[in-house]
Amino acid sequence: MIEIRNLSKWYGNFQVLHNINEEIKQGQTVVVCGPSGSGKSTLLRCINGLEPFQEGEVTVDGVSVSDPGTNLYKLRTEIGMVFQRFELYPHMTALQNIILAPMKVRNKSKKEAEAKAMELLHRVGIPEKAHAYPANLSGGQQQRVAIARSLAMGPKIMMFDEPTSALDPEMIKEVLDVMIDLSKGGMTMIVVTHEMGFAREVADEVIFMDEGRIIERGTDISFFKNPKNPRTKEFLDKILL
């Protein structure tokens, strides 16, 4: 579903990604972890073309992201993205947030888009918040609306960029539960997170990044039991306490 070959990216002279290779098959959930500044978010942003890159190739469902002939707008409808700080549109209700893209990009009727949006709000567990503005929702509720907004386009892939890092501890679970549900439902997912419980439960592969390189990867169990790289071990010790 996603193929990343020899991906390198620079900001000016600073190289943020070094020769990244990764393949994600349909239905897989891949967890990306690593210290801040290690290039995890940048990697996600290269996959949906929010950031250009200088070397290598990224193909999503057979379509090259860097090919100038690629319609990035169309490609992005296939890739949902959830952000650390939710990024809901503050002037719209939860429901309006969700129906905007289906109506404008897919030309769905308002009625059709709203029916689908309500179904998604049920799925993330907050149908009663459909007409609430983001300012009146808790962080966990906002993030669930953001997930519903991404799902409304019917993406084949969902990317999560530290979806629970900005949440109070008691709200983390409600968001993770939605994500676990999605993963078990067969969604192809890339998740940047340090929630190792989540990784253990659903990850097919865990990648550890440091200074723009993938320095360790493994299926979930091998990754946690015996990390080969001392840097990985050090990091895991810190976050797992």
Binding site: L50, Y73, M81, E87, L88, Y89, L100, A101, M153
Partner: peptide
Amino acid sequence: EAGYSTGLS
């Protein structure tokens, strides 16, 4: 970016 990531132009 949230707008772009849902395919809006």
